[in-house]
Amino acid sequence: MSPRRFPRPSKALHPHRQQNRSQQPANDPTYNAPKRPINIHKENTQAFEEAPTSIEVFWDSAHAGKVSIRDDALEAVQFAAIATDQDINDIADMDAVKSKLTALMPQIKTYWGSENDWNQFMAAGDLEVATIWSGSASRSMSAGLPVEFVVPSEGAIGWLDGLSIPVSSTKQDAAHAFINWIIDPAFYVKWAADGAPASANAKAAAALPDDAFNKRILSDPEVVARVQFQRPVSDENREAYLALWQELKAAQ
């Protein structure tokens, strides 16, 4: 796709994502039009007098049997990597990750697999603290769930969704028009009211009202600096993470 049809990158991309983008392979289509930082954790506010700040809340025995993370090997391993103060894209101490996850398992009530699962479990009071994606969190809060989204002091997992157009597309103009529309500030403000992911378009992010979720939580540079963005994972690592996650789940 031709970059000249879109807003210039220096204006289209949020500064922290520009910095991260430089770490990605230039030809990786996933990062062509980054628009969504992600995930971390969130709690049922009825279970907390004060919102926790540390990822260690997942291992706090006060919340035993009321904890959940997504049923995903990569996310589970990277989550434990953050809790053991490691780079999620270059995990040096897998033993530490394994023992951290082993200690986490008894705390877990259930794993969640979809936003719908997560909302049901939270609404039923099955969970007090769980990981979640920022876009999902804003939707749940808009729907009235008594939850709060926190980016822990140790960090959080983030990733970038891309909008790409195949070279073979016969509707290139329509595709460009769609992308321009979806990153447009006017549309984004409306979308964010119902719960939208963070936008890579700085103008769109700036157009949000001050109390909007994505502005209130994710516009703080200190918060954003704590987010570790996922980079491509080798097949070898992916298999090792899956084997570890399956082993831990099988032991329950």
């Binding site: 398992m105 877990i108 009530k109 259930t110 794993y111 399956q246 789940k249 099988a250 329950q252």
Partner: peptide, 12 residues
């Protein structure tokens, strides 16, 4: 229905 203990051969 199984949550954390709901991992079986079929789920794998």
């Amino acid at each position: 229905l199984g949550g954390r203990v709901g991992t079986y051969f079929g789920t794998v």
